[in-house]
Nucleic acid binder design. Structure first.
Length: 550
RNA sequence: GUCCCCAUGGUCAAGUGGUCAAGACGUAGCCCUCUCACGGCUGAGUCAGGGGUUCGACUCCCCUUGGGGAUACCA
């Protein structure tokens, strides 16, 4: 059969040659060792933690080596396109400080290796499909859905591998005349790779993975679809063409791609392209209802969408820190030794990446978050808190905006010194933690301790109010509390009370708890004296009076 | 079913033939202390099972088991 004739029959409109594209996209002019990575999301919906996890690897690899990190939109599946998804992807990643050097942007495309939307690259793909057809390594396939289903059924019964290959590839050896007739008849067709794999006895191939080391697997034997009936390539084919011509050096992707690696290897080989370095990352997992690990899915796990973290008010730096701790096992120790320097200074390596899927651990994130926020200066924390409130809690925003002088010290309360408080995890929790500072949100939440009883409360608070002097320093203030305690028959020190519980009604801690409840509404809080200083004399006294009257 | 990947405490993990099997989160107790946090100390808790190889296996090989993924004109 005349392959050139077939190629012209199928792709008469393609006039460019492979050499044209090689010239159009020359190798990148980058320093030695620079890595070129890419993120290739499909614009199907919302990006989740797993995507961010992978994006970090790409970003670090590229930027650590003075390379290039670009965004390519893989929109070859027209059925799944969601409006506005590209903007969402860019914004979400930007929020977490993942920035691209080239590719799709909100303002259009940037860079010399575009177009960066696969849907705009049809001509390039078809040129290379045509090339394969010319070499007799690809062919049009007219099999109908019914025929394919029937083949699968036969294969299942015979316990053979499913798929279109060898004798099951019904269109593999059609003559030019038959093909012409089919096309004349308007029959739809896809283009399949004519796999060179040995069906009966597949050879073993091995690939060096950047993360996993040597991978060995059987060669591909499947006549996979490379061009759909619509003329759009499948992911497999687009990946190979794009990563070659965009001069990607490292392909970072989830381990779910491992099993299609042989297909990609065959395609690279047949096209005469050099293989990039594949880096197959472990996938983030979560525990399902049955206690099994499960891959994070954006449909089933909305709480793990990036928006969840934004809504909860996790600081982007905290999420970064957490991801880095699970991405590189030596990061945590590095961080303990270097608490104050940016995470970009850490030497990220593929070797330190785990091969097994990590379970997402909210506990750990919270802990990392506390340590991260302690290093965020109050003014910046204020900004972060405000912008979170503006977007997610507009009703509290007016309490913050314009009241920075009041709120900032609240956020900074107890954070100085060598044993700083680590109260804050995320913005929503922050607000809950400090809301008693705002009269509209102040309420009595806890009961007074048994030791004082309700009758004693009045006596304590009246004495407290009488002796209250807003200008007292912290120790003078607490001396007075002790005095009230002893006068009323409470031990000045908890230890005294523990030694002789019968001699006292309780201890100074019980007395100060009463005061604390009156002022903050809760039995637990940071240092009361500092809280009073922030609240101011008027508000402090008013709350005590109100509690006495209640 | 077939193919591929993975396997150290509840979680994340160090470990590459000889270790009392690091560390972090969580958890229990204690200390500090007016509460809570912070910090400090102490404890409980792990090499999935079975065969080999070896003087010696968490470490190397095989099998089993378990988990994950792929098996699309989705990516």
């Amino acid at each position: 059969m005349n392959n050139n004739k077939l190629a012209e029959l199928l792709f008469s409109h393609i006039t460019k040659t492979p050499a044209d594209y090689e010239a159009m996209y020359p190798g990148r002019d980058l320093p030695e060792g620079a890595k070129v990575t890419r993120l290739g999301p499909s614009p199907t919906g919302f990006i989740h933690l797993g995507n961010l996890y992978g994006a970090f690897v790409d970003e670090r690899l590229a930027h650590q080596s003075n390379g290039t990190f670009y965004l390519r939109i893989e929109d070859t599946d027209d059925k799944r396109y969601v409006e506005g998804a590209v903007e969402t992807i860019i914004d979400s990643l930007k929020f977490f400080n993942i920035n691209f050097d080239e590719g799709a942007t909100k303002e259009g495309e940037q860079g010399a290796y575009g177009p960066y939307f696969q849907s705009d690259r049809g001509e390039l793909y078809q040129c290379f499909v045509k090339e394969l057809v010319k070499k007799g390594e690809a062919y049009p396939c007219f099999m109908t859905e019914e025929e394919i289903a029937k083949v699968r059924e036969t294969q299942e019964q015979a316990k053979e591998n499913p798929g279109i290959y060898g004798k099951y590839a019904l269109s593999r050896d059609l003559s030019l005349e038959e093909i012409e007739a089919n096309i004349q008849a308007g029959k739809p067709y896809v283009v399949r790779l004519k796999s060179g794999g040995n069906v009966a006895d597949p050879a073993e191939i091995s690939v060096e993975d950047g993360i996993r080391g040597t991978l060995t697997m059987p060669e591909n034997c499947q006549d996979v679809v490379i061009l759909k009936a619509t003329g759009i390539p499948t992911y497999h084919f687009a990946h190979v063409c794009d990563d070659h011509f965009m001069r990607t050096t490292h392909v970072v992707r989830g381990e779910e791609w491992l099993s299609s690696l042989p297909i990609h290897v065959e395609l690279f080989t047949r096209l005469g392209f050099a293989l990039p370095i594949y880096c197959h990352t472990a996938v983030l997992m979560k525990l399902d209802e049955n206690g099994n690990k499960r891959k994070l899915s954006k449909r089933k796990d909305p709480e793990l969408s990036l928006d969840f973290y934004r809504e909860m008010g996790y600081h982007p730096m905290a999420v970064r820190e957490y991801l880095l701790t699970i991405l590189n096992s030596n990061y945590e120790e590095w961080r303990i030794e270097n608490p104050d320097i940016p995470c970009e200074s850490f030497a990220f390596t593929m070797e330190k990446m785990s091969n097994s899927g990590a379970l997402f651990d909210l506990n750990k994130l919270n802990d990392v978050s506390k340590d991260t926020l302690i290093n965020v200066p109050a003014a910046l924390l204020m900004d972060f808190f405000k912008s979170w409130a503006k977007e997610f809690r507009p009703e509290i925003y007016p309490l913050l905006d314009g009241h920075e002088d009041y709120v900032e010290p609240i956020l900074d309360l107890g954070r100085s010194g060598n044993k700083p408080r680590k109260d804050f995890i995320c913005a929503s929790q922050m607000f809950d933690f400090i809301r008693y500072f705002f009269d509209d949100y102040f309420e009595i939440e806890d009961a007074v301790p048994e030791e004082t009883g309700t009758e004693e409360v009045k006596a304590i608070l009246t004495a407290y109010l009488d002796s209250y002097d807003h200008s007292d320093d912290q120790s003078a203030w607490f001396d007075k509390v002790r005095e009230i305690a002893t006068t009323l028959g409470y031990a000045a020190k908890p230890k005294d009370y523990k030694k002789n519980p019968d001699e006292y009604k309780g201890h100074v801690g019980h007395v100060s708890t009463v005061i604390r409840i009156a002022i903050v509404g809760r039995s637990q809080s940071p240092d009361l004296w500092e809280i009073q200083q922030i609240l101011g004399e008027t508000r402090t006294k008013a709350r005590i009076s109100a509690f006495i009257q209640a």
